[in-house]
């Protein structure tokens, strides 16, 4: 039985949700409205007046090769971050799941990176891979590899992917571990008796039963890679070299605050707003029908 508190009247409930409404209005509805409004204008070079251009900013953006390149970069970046962070997390969760004793310790240790702010994580990785004084760079140098993510686009991408994925592993790990532990042990044992060895069991039983968790994490991680990796990219590569790590969110910042092209920047925000709405809808739709077997 679900226990609900019911209120008489409307004043008290309204008062209780007011802070949330205010926060949402100030930090979401207002800026979102501003972005939509501004995306329809082009400011003059001195920022003194605005010229209405309708969907001109969007037309320009979609024909802009740099913007399209940024889309591709974002796709590559977020796929890599998602695959790496979920893959490593799943691997660790499977190992921890087989371990009954001590899994609590691992869980605690593995959750730590989650508490590290993206910008701090970025600085951390930047130090390790600094082209001159980085400890990893030095070891790679000993092995005869000349690491330089400031010049090499692939290396730059690799570094921001690793730095972004690292912070997500613990979050994903916790969900995967909970998902694994929710699978009844006897089902796994029945499969073992039926002849399935570890890998077959994983492929045919464990992974399918884990699919609700996997899908949930997929959406959450894509959203993260799209929007919350700004700090990492800003501290490590600032979108370079040659825009190789300029993902859509970073481009909003670069064009708007650095390039002062507010109209284009606002139009980009609106496009991102649409993307995140679609992702959210997918997620909610799916979570509603979560129990699919």
């Amino acid at each position: 039985m679900e226990k609900r508190v019911t209120f008489q009247g409307v004043l008290l409930p309204l008062l209780l949700v007011l802070p949330q409404i205010v926060v949402t209005a100030v930090f979401f509805f207002y800026p979102a409205g501003q972005a939509i409004w501004q995306s329809l204008f082009i400011p003059d070079p001195f920022g003194l007046s605005m010229r209405f251009v309708g969907l001109g900013n969007f037309e320009f953006l979609l024909s802009d090769p740099y913007y399209r390149a940024s889309f591709v970069t974002t796709a590559i970046f977020s796929s890599l971050v998602t695959v790496v962070s979920m893959g490593v997390a799943l691997y660790l969760a499977v190992l921890a799941d087989r371990l009954i004793k001590g899994s609590g310790t691992y869980r605690t240790l593995l959750i730590w990176p989650y508490a590290v702010a993206p910008a701090v994580a970025g600085v951390l990785w930047l130090f390790m891979f600094n082209t001159r004084v980085g400890v990893v760079t030095w070891y790679l140098g000993l092995l005869g590899y000349d690491w330089n993510h400031v010049l090499n686009e692939g290396e730059a991408m690799g570094l921001v992917v690793v730095a972004s994925a690292w912070g997500r592993i613990s979050y994903n790990f916790l969900f995967f571990l909970a998902g694994l532990q929710a699978i009844p042990k006897s089902v796994i044992e029945a499969a073992a008796i039926d002849g399935a060895r570890f890998w077959t069991r994983f492929r045919t039983i464990v992974f399918p039963l884990l699919s609700p968790t996997t899908f949930f994490l997929l959406v959450v991680n894509v959203v993260y890679a799209f929007f919350e990796t700004f700090g990492v990219i800003h501290t490590i590569t600032s979108g370079g070299p040659q825009q190789a790590t300029t993902i859509l969110v970073y481009k909003v910042f670069a064009d708007g605050f650095v390039g002062q092209d507010l109209g284009s920047s606002a139009a980009q925000s609106v496009i991102l707003l649409v993307v995140v709405s679609v992702l959210t809808v997918i997620q909610f739709k799916y979570i509603e029908r979560r129990v699919h077997y």
């Binding site: 009844p184 006897s186 089902v187 044992e189 029945a190 499969a191 073992a192 008796i193 039926d194 002849g195 399935a196 060895r197 039983i205």
Partner: peptide
């Protein structure tokens, strides 16, 4: 899997 046995569990353990 190599013992040539089959087991029926209390909670059935169906997939």
């Amino acid at each position: 899997m190599d013992r040539n046995i089959a087991m029926v569990f209390q909670n059935y353990a169906l997939y």
